[in-house]
Structure formats: C-alpha cells, structure tokens
Design a protein around this nucleic acid. Structure first.
Lengths: 376, 376
DNA sequence: ACTCTAGATGAATCTCGCT
DNA sequence: CAGCGAGATTCATCTAGAG
C-alpha cells in the first residue's frame, strides 16, 4: 500500500468517525451514492423494495372495460437483464458493507426480478436464512384467463454470511401465530383503505407496501433501538413502522413527491389501532376445500359416479373436478346440481352422494375426512 | 392418397423410426446426455425436480474466519456457485432444445437453488409465466427455533419465449377451484402414507413429490396425448400421474434403485378412461356460433329488441344479425356494444339481454340452448 | 344513524387467427 | 408482419352515494 492510499484511508476513517448516522431522516438522492456515504458495519438491518423490472406490454382492460392502472414509472425501466443485474449488485454490495456483522437484509420482489436478486444476494456472500411468501388476500385477478392469478410476492431474508449471527425473536413470532411456529408463508391484504396514501384521490405511490408486512419483519428480526436502512424508501412504510416499534430508521429516496408524503406520514405515525393489529394475526388456514382438491388427492377418482340422495340423477366425476351428466350437461358440483334440478342454486356438497360399502353418503363427508387429515 | 403423399409419409415414418421417442420409458443415465439423444422440438413439457444443492454450505464453502483472505474467499464462493450454475444451464439448454415451440417447462426448487435456476431460465430465453408456491400443509418444523418454518417450495412455469404460445386449461383450473381463478399459491400435504414409496420400512427417495402436485400441473398445462419429459425422474411421480391422465412420459434417471421403484409404481398406476379424462373446455375450443345463426334459426327474430342489463341502451335486431341503435349506430353485437359504451371492446354475448317471460336474460343463454339442441 | 348497492381498483410481463 | 375484427375475460375490498 502506497503513501497516498494510506492517507486516503486515514482520511476516510476520520470522516466516518465524525459523520454521525442520519437517524430517523430521509436522505434524498440515489440509493447507491447515499449508502456510500454511510460508514461500514454501522446498521442492523436493510429492508429493500427495489424496482421489479416488470417489462409490461400494452394497455390492459378489465372485462368490464375499465382500464388497469399499471406501473409505468421511469424508475422501473431497464433495457436488459444485464443492466438490471449491474444495478442490483451495486446496491446490494453497499448494503453488505454498511451492515453490522450480525445484521440481516430483507428484499422483496416478484418473479420478474426476485430470481436475479436472489442470485446476486448469494454471489455477494450473503447467506439466505429463509425465503418468505407474502400471500395476498385480495390480489388483482388475471383478467384474460391466460395464467394463474399472480397472488403472491417473495421476500428473501439473509445474514451477512454462513456463520454470521443474527437476530430472530422466535418467541415473539410463535406468540404472534397462536403458539405455532411462524411459517414461511404469510397472508396479508394488499395496502388499501385508510392506510393507502392518496393525494387528490390518486394514490401517491404505485406499490405502497402494507404496514403489517414491515411490522412482522421488524418485530421478528430487530431489537428496540436497532437501525434499519431502506434504500428504496418510497412513501416510508419502513419508517412509519420502525417509529411505532421503537426502532431507528434511515430512508433513501430520489422522488420529492414520495419524500414529502413519507415525512408527513411518519410524523403522524400513531400507535397501531386494533384493526391494524387484527391483520397482524396469522389467520388459521381456511377450512374451505375445493371439490377438485379431493380429486387431486385421491379422495375421489375421475370416473367415480355420484347420485343425489334419491338416485334421480347420475353423474360422472371428471379429471378436473367437473361433473358430467348422461344428458351431456357439465359443470361444477354446484352448477350441475342446479342445472339438473332447474333450480337457481344448489349446494353440491350436500346434494351429491357417493356409494361406499353399500352406503350412500354426501360428498361433504369426504371433505371432512380430508380436513381432518391435513389440518394441524 | 397420391403417390407423393405416400412417399412423404413413408419417409417421415422412417425418420421417426430411426430416432423414435422412448415414450413411456425410463432412460438410465445422465440427464444431459440423455436429453441430447432426443430430437429438437419434440416434446410438450419438461418437468424438472433438480438437485437442490443443499450441500453448498458444508462442502463447498470454507468456514468464515478472519485469517482467510477475503478476496480468495469470495473467489471460492463464486467458483462453487459457478459449478452449480454451469450444470443448471447445461440441462436447461437441452430442455429448451427438445421442447416444441409451444411447450413449457416446470422446475421446482427451494431457496437454496431456485434463484439460480430462475436466473438461468430467464438468461436462456425462457419467458416466465408464473412462479407457483407449494404451501406444505404439514411441513417439518424448525426444531432449533432459529428461523421461520420452511413451509413451502417454489415452482417456475415458463414458455420458450416471450411471444411463444402455450397450453393453459383455464376452465379446468377454474372448475377445480370451485369456480374461482386458480391462484399462484397451492396447498398440498407432503408426500406420505400409502403414497410414499418404502422398501424395508425406509423411504426409497428423500424428496418424493406428491402426486397431487403433478396432477394439477399436467391437468393445467398439457393436453391428453402430450409428451412430458422428466430429467430427474426419481421414483417416477411424473410418470405415474402422466399415465393416469392419459399423457405420454419419458423419464431420465441415474440411480438403479429409483428406476426399479418407479417401474413397479407406474405399472400399478391405472389410466383413467376417456370419459373421466374429459375436462371443462374453454369457449374458444367449442364450436363457434355466429349471432346471425340464431336469427336464421328462429332463436331470435329480426325486429326483436335487445337491451343491456340496466336497460340503458336499446337496440333492434336486424335480418342479417347486425344491431341498430335508435341513435342510428349499427354494427355487430360486439362492436355496437363497444361503440355505445365508448369502450375499447365489449363481449356482446354477455352484454346484450332479451326479455322473455318478464325476465331479462343475456343472449348467451340462447347460444347455449342452440348448442345443446344441435350438438350430438 | 344505518343499510344497501353501484362503482372503483390493486407490482400484470394478460388473445387469436385471418388477410 | 402489421392491421383488423371477433369474441373471451375478474376477485376482494373499500368508498361514495342513495335510500
């Protein structure tokens, strides 16, 4: 190491010692440059909600003709995967540097970007602890019927390295989950209602995250007084939740509109009210079982014959859980029951029966058997 | 049949005879070499359950210590991930080659490998259609309480390219899910009970996948008779389900123990008969009925009045099956519906209604009636 | 004040076949 | 290959306004 490097190094160390962390503040500017200004090994968590690189095509309309408001912001535009990867690795490298050795990072994304983010996370030496699935209670449907409803997003939780220590408040999570271990799949509604920031009736940010999500993350993986950095601060969900939970925060954001909204929001951050707390509870897995699930799991087999209690109607179970009558009519258990009876509606679970061991039993008993076998 | 056709046909048969697909067979050996022996663009789906690279932590990484040169350490990590990546890209490239242009690939993995797999999938030109989460109803708990219970695995579904066509049986999936769109999060129990293959009380394969998972995948994304290749066949879940559902399969596997177990298992899998195999069809694949045909056949008469459900618009049916509004606008049922609403598009079948016996019903019901009356 | 209904909307890689 | 036209396609939740 030459003299110049030595001097430069000493100067930088001195500068770091002098520069205090901009705690509970928003730093305006590019996230990579802003993180470079923070000292090494100085923060306890990085929570990042980077651009997803959606690559959307043309306009999309709902079946009722209304227009879908897509994410068309410039900050989500990248020309190539290589460009997105370079950006990802640059900000992740800075995140790694500013984290204390026992700090952790959280990143959220969708299938558009999360695989590239995860690969970069591993390549930079982070050690993945869990991937977490946010199951959306109310996702936007797939309006054209071309794919499965995109009903979840993925989060990655990683420590600084394989042997690194990290904070995990196991008891808090177990308590939050009715004395069952917290699983890697979490269900929350998307951000809406009063929580969704609006200005003039228009949403301020296209992708505001629910506070319940950040609440669980900060509660699980930080201690009171810990410092959380959010390099893509947006409208400041991380800051608002951190303040409520007694954590310190640093936000980095380029857009003035978002910064203004975030400042106002965090200043007003009130203790979580009861309705918000209610959404924190992990809902018991839904007792609802679709008829098709029984076919998939072998409780019924395609080809089985169902009848009503008086054996007036006779139908065949098909591979996809639809029923087919001898007269050619087909449909779900409810629809076909209604059609054959000429009724407006029908509860297929109690209407249709299957003969087992000479006894005619409603198919609802099969559902009960399935639930008993799979519910904890 | 003319001479030319006969010759062409014989030549094609000869070509196929030289390199026939090993349908409904297990090919023993390395998956990359075995796929290389298959012709290009010859199969409809690849389902892959590759090694999860779980050994990365113990065997491929050096322990983290201050005495180890940081640069060398990073190099080492990159090198070992590179090995897994090279293997992944090699078999994915072969999968891409053997797939027909309208074929799709499914890959399952966990956080240990799925990010690397997903990145490779994208880099090879595949176009991700969905990522699917398999929520385990009964996952293994995290015994040491150090992380969230790892309660899911991730699947990637991708077409050969952005503009590629693919099979998605939307109606079947909606029926299977009680008339709601099938979401990207699926819940199944892990493979156990009678389904779990055992020999001498010990499980034959450590990661046998549940048949219900493959059942949904094959039902959703293949047609009867389609060919599915599984390059990591294991104990043959893919083959067993494919046989039951009337799909053809090709398994590739190195371990003799697994091959033996798979052969026995698949032989015992009973194919469903044709009527049970039938599924709900999308309207697109049903015979098309032009609106004019209903007029021609007296299901509607020129001069009949149609309105929308709320009776905001009122139009007259004309002899050629076009509609005429009081304001002078005319057009097909779709076009006029769109014009009057000022919408970009409109489904006239569900938009326009006719009053019969005091009840307002969509004209689509007339089409259903016509189809029932005329279909064999 | 409360109920009911109609309308709006959310990180979305969202048609197909013929000319 | 671009353009055009037929016709297929949505779930949970919140808000506003009517009753």
């Amino acid at each position: 190491m030459g003299v110049i490097e030595k001097v430069a190094r000493r100067t930088r160390q001195a500068a770091e010692a002098e520069a205090p962390l901009p705690l509970d503040q928003i730093v305006m500017g590019d996230c990579i440059a802003a993180m470079k200004a923070l000292p090494s090994k100085s923060v306890d968590m990085v929570f990042a909600d980077p651009p997803y690189n959606l690559q959307l095509g043309g306009e999309l309309f709902r079946p009722d003709g209304s227009h879908v408001d897509a994410v068309t912001d410039d900050w989500d535009k990248f020309d190539t995967f290589a460009q997105y990867d370079a950006f990802t690795r640059a900000w992740l490298a800075e995140a790694h540097r500013i984290l204390k050795d026992d700090g952790t990072i959280w990143v959220i994304g969708s299938y558009h970007n999360i695989f590239r983010v995860g690969t970069a996370v591993q390549d930079l030496g982070f050690w993945i602890l869990n991937d977490i699935v946010w199951r959306k209670a109310n996702p936007m449907p797939n309006f054209r019927g071309t794919r499965f409803t995109n009903a979840h997003e993925t989060l990655i939780w990683a420590s600084k390295g394989e042997k690194a220590k990290y904070t995990f408040n196991y008891r808090s999570m177990k308590t939050l989950n009715d004395e069952l271990q917290m699983r890697s799949d979490w269900e929350f509604p998307i951000c809406g209602g009063n929580e969704r920031l609006k200005k003039g009736g228009v949403k301020v940010h296209p992708t505001q995250k629910p506070e319940a999500l950040l609440y669980r993350i900060l509660l699980a993986c930080t201690k009171p007084g810990d410092v959380v950095v959010d390099p893509f601060f947006g409208t400041g969900t991380t800051g608002a939740v951190a303040r409520r939970l007694g954590r310190r925060w640093i936000g980095i954001e380029r857009e003035l509109t978002y910064v203004d909204a975030a400042m106002e929001r965090i200043a007003a951050a009130l203790p979580l009210d009861e309705s918000a707390l209610a959404t924190m509870q992990s809902p018991r897995s839904q007792p609802k079982v679709a008829f098709g699930v029984l076919v998939e799991n072998g409780y019924l087999t395609a080809g089985d014959v169902l009848t009503d209690a008086k054996r007036r109607y006779r139908v065949l179970v098909r591979a996809d859980g639809s029923l087919a009558s001898e007269c050619g009519a087909t449909g779900s258990i409810h629809k076909l029951g209604a059609t054959l009876q000429g009724a407006p509606a029908c509860n297929g679970w109690t209407f249709w029966h299957i003969e087992r061991d000479g006894v005619l039993a409603p198919i609802d008993t099969l559902r009960q058997t399935y639930l008993l076998a799979t519910q904890p």
